[in-house]
């Protein structure tokens, strides 16, 4: 956990995440790991008990995890959503917008690159899970 880049102030969950199937069978864990083929909506009845959802990206080009994170945030989940696996600095800004607030990639990220990537975009065009006010709302104040 020490290497995770977190945008949260609470303490990180200190036990390993279980698979979605394992969680649904026996649900006293507080950390779950979503693989690309899992349906995040299966977790919605249990969100009150979950403190960490890891979303795995075996390959960064498989974008199912972006939808999974947004679905969790749209359901009101406020716990940690951590991107793990093949996560590169070039995806960080989009991942943040979809509700990810922690990153623990296979290859550690250069903090200065991350800072630059997150500062790159002055504004956003659309609503997502990060609460930013889209350009089209700013135009009509």
């Amino acid at each position: 956990m020490a290497d995770a880049l977190r945008f949260r102030t609470d303490n990180a969950v200190d036990h390993p995440a279980v698979t979605v199937d394992a969680y649904l069978e026996q649900s006293n864990a507080s950390a779950v790991r979503i693989e690309p083929g899992d349906d995040a909506r299966d977790l919605l009845p249990h969100l009150g008990h979950i403190r960490l959802v890891e979303i795995n990206f075996p390959a960064f080009g498989d974008g199912r995890g972006y939808s999974a994170a947004r679905v969790l945030r749209e359901a009101g989940y406020t716990g940690e959503i951590r991107a793990v696996g093949d996560v590169l600095v070039d995806q960080i800004a989009y991942l943040r917008r979809c509700g990810f607030d922690a990153f623990e990639p296979d290859q550690p990220l250069d903090p200065s690159d991350v800072k630059m990537a997150l500062a790159r975009w002055p504004d956003v065009y659309q609503s997502a899970a990060d609460g930013r006010v889209p350009i089209w709302s700013q135009r009509h104040g």
């Binding site: 960064f60 947004r70 989009y94 991942l95 065009y125 350009i135």
Partner: peptide, 13 residues
């Protein structure tokens, strides 16, 4: 066009 530009959820379809 604006909605789809830099869409955070749909850039790795």
């Amino acid at each position: 066009r604006q909605w789809s530009s830099f869409h955070p959820e749909f850039s790795y379809l």
